[in-house]
Every structure is written in C-alpha cells, then in structure tokens.
Amino acid sequence: MAKKYHVSATVNGDPVEFLCSGQETMLDVLRDRLELTGAKEGCGSGDCGACSVTVDGRLICSCLMLGVEAEGTSIETVEGMADGDQLTPLQRIFLEEEALQCGICTPGVLVAAKALLAKNPDPDETTIRYWLAGNLCRCTGYDKIVRAVQKAAAEMRA
C-alpha cells in the first residue's frame, strides 16, 4: 500500500483535512480531493499560471507545490473570492470589460491580480504587465486584462 500523508490546512478560510501521496501536487489535491476545480492545469511546469493560488498570502503556482507541503498553511483560491453570488469588483469588472474568452486562464489571472492589488493598490500598466507575465492567456490578448485590473484598482481605491 502506498504511503498516504494526512494534511491539515486552511483553504479559503475553512479548515480542511486530506490524505495524499507524496508526489501529488497541491493542484491535484485542490482539484481531485477538495473538489475546487477553479485552479487549472495548463502546463504543469510553472509556465502558464493557470494554477495560481496564494499560500500564506504569497502568490505561487500550485502545480509546483506538493500537497503535503500544505500542512499548517492558509491557501486562497479563486473560489474564495466571491461572497455567494456577490462578485468582488475585480471579478465583476473582468466580466464587464470582457477580459476573458474561454476562461481557462481567468481563475489564475484573478488570483494573481488580487495579490497585486493587495500589495499595490495603484499599479501602473508596466507593473501590471510584469506582475502578470507568468499568467498566459491564449484568447483575449492582454490589453483587456490589464485594463480590467486598472479599472478594478481605481474602483477599489475610491
């Protein structure tokens, strides 16, 4: 029998416990064990950012973290953003500004943009583009994404 690790963590504010094997990634744990399928696997190698989550406030690729490493940490995913049907300004403005098409990259982009705005409420375009350089989008083009982040930042500052 393969060894399983018992892990306790906090995900989107809720305590969770899960069993996982040593090589399972945090992304696999989120999607397959915790049924949080917001984070996506685009590449599995740290290049696309579709799997972005924050761990203890730090933005990371969940495909490059082992599930066992989650012990004692607090993880935030896209599912933790909206309050029921009440979207955050960032989410609502992404819809209004049509900053997505297929939507595969969107959970990662939202998590990354939220982390940026928490650190810097008024980022300029260059800052946003560098911050989001690890979030690839094959559909929208980045202009709409950048504009949506700027517009959300302005509304959130108001």
Partner: peptide
C-alpha cells in the same frame, strides 16, 4: 528568476 508565482517559492 521566473514569474511572480515562481518568485514566491
């Protein structure tokens, strides 16, 4: 080294 996400680790 890498993106913001990679920098996180």
């Amino acid at each position: 080294i890498g993106s913001t996400q990679v920098q996180g680790r």
